[in-house]
Design a protein around this nucleic acid. Sequence first.
RNA 1: GCUGCAUGCUGAGCUAUCGCCACGACGAUUCUGUCGGGGAGGAAAGUCCGGACAGCAUAGAGCAACGUACCGGUGAAGAGCCGGGUGUCCCGCAUCAGGCGGGGCAACAGAAAGUGCCACAGAAAAUAACUACUCUGCUUUGGCAGAGAAAAGGUGAAAACGUAGGAUAAGAGCCUACGGGUUAUUACAGUAAUGUAAUAGCAGGGUAAACCUUGCGUGCUGAAAUGCCAUGUAUGCCGUUGCCUGAGAACGGCUCGUUCAAUGACGGUGGGUAGGCAGAUUGAUCCCUUGGGGUAACUUUUGGGACAGAUAAAUGAUAGCUCCGUUCGCCUUUGCGAAAGCAUUGGUGGAUAUGACAAAAUCCGGCUUACAGGUUUGCAGUAAUU
RNA 2: UGGCCUAUAGUAUAAUGGUAGUACGACAGAUUUUGGUUCUGUUUGUCUUGGUUCGAAUCCAGGUAGGCCAA
Length: 132
Amino acid sequence: MKQFTLGKKERLKSRKQIEQLFKEGKTFSVQPLRIYYTVQSTPAVTSPLQFGVAVGTRQFKHAVDRNRIKRLIREAYRLQKNEIQEQLKLKNKTLNVFFIYTGKELPQYQLIYETVRIALQKLRQIIVQSAT
RNA sequence: GCUGCAUGCUGAGCUAUCGCCACGACGAUUCUGUCGGGGAGGAAAGUCCGGACAGCAUAGAGCAACGUACCGGUGAAGAGCCGGGUGUCCCGCAUCAGGCGGGGCAACAGAAAGUGCCACAGAAAAUAACUACUCUGCUUUGGCAGAGAAAAGGUGAAAACGUAGGAUAAGAGCCUACGGGUUAUUACAGUAAUGUAAUAGCAGGGUAAACCUUGCGUGCUGAAAUGCCAUGUAUGCCGUUGCCUGAGAACGGCUCGUUCAAUGACGGUGGGUAGGCAGAUUGAUCCCUUGGGGUAACUUUUGGGACAGAUAAAUGAUAGCUCCGUUCGCCUUUGCGAAAGCAUUGGUGGAUAUGACAAAAUCCGGCUUACAGGUUUGCAGUAAUU
RNA sequence: UGGCCUAUAGUAUAAUGGUAGUACGACAGAUUUUGGUUCUGUUUGUCUUGGUUCGAAUCCAGGUAGGCCAA
């Protein structure tokens, strides 16, 4: 049984879905990250948890830096998302999440790992609250 | 040996764990599994040129607009590259002078088609004439009026070809000699630009990266192009115009012209879709190699090898070691020095953070810009030894 | 991906190729018991590198930064 995968089905790919997320989704922020999410009680079509990343052109001019930040966030997310995924499977819900990096300096991996951990904990709390 | 500049090449490596993208094979059968070998650059960047490719348009003519500008070659093409010419700057050599050699740079058509502009200073910045000069007339001997001429005049970035002589009332390319510039013709050399020589002519400067003129070139739009499939759907409503007269359209910048044109055309408003596949990655391809052509750019030939394909966008993360760099300690070489010490060579051990510029997005050829460290070649400077 | 535009003092905004202004601000001084108002003076600049020109903010070319448009 594979655990730490992040294939095509687990990422947000459709333009329509993403626009909907930004229109209707709720937000909170954990220091250099801003997170958009929507929780739906309908069972998932493809995957219960879908995910996306973005870094603005304003903050980082070069594509190299943007790519690096996106890869770091994706890596940190990949290693930590399992618990939340199982929680969703049990409760038969879908969650769409979008991470936006708003900082102005290139981060270290440790910092990203920590912030993603905190963000995911918050999301788990939100799921529990919405269930009750 | 060191330093600097230019130039070409290179653009850290290995292991483990966890992943990403497409492809192939096998198994499975409609959502995944196993295995295999692949997966970012010299600039992928800037988007400055040129194409390929695609759609629309295209009887033709004129104007406009834009681009371009010594000549020849190269190439699919170009504002690229190579060679040549001319001009100019620098260096070296030689010299009475003319010159000879090497290197750099050039948006290098036309100012003798026309228009504009040339601050300040200066008499004057371009149809000259303020002072001074010459002649004539008048004269109160201070000058005044008329005519001539363009030589002299603390300027300026630039001053009406330069020097010498003649001529003259005074002068002036007004004339002559020498010299320089420029235009045309002819001859010779060269494919040509151009050069050399002769003859004839010209004389009022700069600026075209001011307008402009001349020659040449350019149809427009760009993969968010475009085609197919699926989904969805309404010949909807309003206004204008027209159905005899020519409104309008043909996405050309405009005009003429041509063609089309009635269940119509144009404008506004409203509704729906916005997913997939192709385009799309093997092509004017790149690298190594063998011979030929050419001064070179480049071209041709023999043999072999290589070539990613994402689409909210893959090619990564973590840990360890090595490499390079920095820094510290110990030993050591050489030089200076009386010594302390300073500079320096090599070895060894530890610590440390960092790892240049930079991420394919339809594809190619160039150009431009960025680039830590290492390394090749050349030039210049400098130190020691022979 | 393709196309277009802009850059002038701390801020806003002028300037035919010919001495870079104006307003607000900042600073200093005067007036006032003090502050404000008012008056006087000073400060700081053509994004950058080259070229054309006797002379560039202006013209031309390369770069840098910022902004806008096209689904």
